[in-house]
Write a protein that binds this DNA or RNA. Structure first.
Length: 259
DNA sequence: ATGCCCTATCGCATAGGA
């Protein structure tokens, strides 16, 4: 079973690539982030023609998550029970579903903007709400994973130049402690292999030739419970999908699971 | 080392991304 996560930076702008990639990669379950569309705009029909069902949580131009599956899509759970919201509004950043033998949760963690910004406190609060929401599945016997754009680089090895991130979000002790607490529910970081170079980066800024220079970050993560981690046969970052015109700034992370 | 920001919006700049 092939499971993947991909921040597509607009499902509308990325649709031709997403459809071609699904067909070419043979992915069974795809967790999407930053769909940047309304519920009505989500391309359910185009995906259905390829044999995929979609569970969508989206409300407009920002954020938006989905689970796309051709092996079943049941017990859909949008949002987080304890979501703190931002500026008085709850944002579409999490959705869970059961796809055959596996349960997945697609997440788009808030960016945080700057340390000390209200969005940064929101990011930490949201991660705590995520921890509460996944604790039961994480401790369970069924294979389960939280996949998505965490907007946190777990270690200094996960950014291309640590010195450039001094005082910035994505690398702080608080953010990393929040990830550690999340792992404390019983989840393991399924680190993918890079298809090139030494680090499995998943994001490269559009600007300043970051991708050709491999100035990237590993911020798209797969956190699996014990049953999930035990089934991992392979995991890799499909950097080919970051190339060329019309690419997202994130590459898909792919996991092959024996279940 | 496959290319020098991109996306969405009642746009004619701006917010957000990280």
């Amino acid at each position: 079973m092939r499971i993947a996560t991909w921040n597509v930076n607009s499902i509308t702008a990325r649709l031709p690539r997403v459809l071609a990639w699904l067909e070419g990669s043979g992915t069974d379950v795809l967790c999407l982030q930053e769909t940047k569309c309304t519920d009505e705009q989500f391309p359910r029909e185009a995906l259905r023609e390829l044999g995929y069902d979609s569970a969508v949580l989206a409300d407009g131009r920002w954020n938006g998550v989905a689970v796309v599956s051709r092996v079943g899509l049941d017990d859909v759970a949008p949002g987080l029970p304890a979501d703190p919201g931002y500026d008085g509004r709850t944002e579409p950043r999490a959705i869970a579903a059961t796809c055959g033998p596996v349960r997945v949760r697609s997440v788009y963690v808030p960016n945080g903007r700057e340390v000390g910004h209200p969005h940064y406190a929101y990011k930490l609060g949201w991660l705590e709400a995520l921890r509460e929401a996944v604790a039961e599945d994480a401790a369970g016997e069924r294979p389960f994973a939280v996949l998505g754009d965490y907007n946190v680089a777990p270690t200094d090895e996960d950014v291309w130049d640590r010195s450039l991130f001094e005082g910035a979000t994505h690398v702080t002790g608080e953010e990393r402690a929040a990830l550690a607490a999340l792992r404390g529910t019983g989840l393991t970081d399924v680190v993918p292999r890079p298809l090139k170079y030494d680090h499995p980066y998943t994001y490269w800024d559009y600007r300043q030739l970051c991708f050709p220079k491999n100035r990237g970050m590993r911020i798209d993560l797969v956190y699996g419970n014990a049953a999930f981690a035990a089934g991992v046969a392979d995991a890799y970052v499909d950097r080919e999908e970051r190339k060329g015109k019309g690419a997202s700034d994130h590459a898909p992370v792919v996991v092959d699971l024996d279940v």
